[in-house]
Amino acid sequence: MLQLSRTSALALFLTAALFQVPAMAAQPYVAIEKRLSPEQLHAAGLDTLSSEQLATLNRLLSDEQAAHTRDQAQDGVGLREKRVEAEPVSATAKGDARGWSKGDVVELDNGQRWRVVEGELYLGKATGSRKVTIAPGAFGAWYMQVDGKTPRLKVQRVQ
């Protein structure tokens, strides 16, 4: 049978625990000693941790879960399949576009991509990347505004 050192067992356990964070993201954090049986704690070597070490482990796992929840919420902004709190997105549009019209896809520096579904905007000469704000509107619509200029373009998140 494979023998693991205490350090290897702990590393393996923490890795497995962190990969399970997405499934737990919607739930409040539950302390590791409440999730595992005494046998599981012993097998992972966690029963030998001091109370300070156990508290640190729980804090790290809780912080990781909270960070993942925030990342998941931001990642879902604008997608129809993922209903999240509607928060405006501020980013920089990549490229040297002189403007956008219906059908154009705007790629942002945060990795998001948005397609113009209504409206047209001509910016004049290309000046490189532009600051944009994409804000929610009524009935699930999203609107992109470039450098505070008008008109706003109605956009839809592209996966």
Score class of each variant (00 low, 15 high):
Arg83His: 00
Thr15Cys: 10
Gly119Ser: 10
Val84Phe: 07
Pro136Val: 04
Leu46Val: 02
Leu60Asp: 02
Leu60Lys: 00
Val89Ala: 11
Lys94Gln: 15
Gln74Arg: 08
Ala66Leu: 09
Gly119Lys: 03
Leu123Val: 11
Leu153Asp: 03
Gln145Ala: 05
Val89Tyr: 13
Gly140Arg: 06
Thr127His: 15
Trp142Glu: 14
Arg98Cys: 11
Ser5Gln: 05
Leu14Ile: 04
Lys125Phe: 09
Arg98Thr: 14
Met1Phe: 06
Lys154Gln: 12
Glu81Tyr: 13
Leu121Asn: 08
Ala31Ile: 03
Leu54Lys: 08
Arg115Trp: 07
Pro136Met: 04
Asp47Glu: 12
Val117His: 07
Asp147Val: 09
Lys34Ile: 01
Phe19Arg: 03
Leu12Ala: 11
Ile134Val: 11
Glu107Asn: 08
Gly148Phe: 00
Ser50Pro: 15
Gly76Cys: 15
Arg59Leu: 01
Ala17His: 01
Ala141Leu: 00
Pro22His: 11
Gly124Cys: 13
Tyr122Asn: 12
Pro88Asp: 15
Asp104Val: 02
Met144Ala: 08
Trp114His: 11
Lys82Ala: 14
Val155Trp: 00
Ala43Asn: 11
Lys125Leu: 07
Thr15Asn: 13
Asp104Lys: 00
Ala93Trp: 05
Trp114Ala: 14
Gln145Arg: 09
Ser37His: 04
Gly95Asp: 13
Val106Tyr: 01
Gln112Lys: 15
Thr48Tyr: 04
Arg6Phe: 13
Ser51His: 14
Phe19Asn: 09
Thr15Trp: 10
Arg115Ile: 12
Leu10Lys: 06
Gln156Asp: 04
Ala135Arg: 01
Lys34Pro: 02
Ala135His: 03
Gln53Phe: 12
Val106Met: 06
Gly111Asn: 12
Ala25Thr: 08
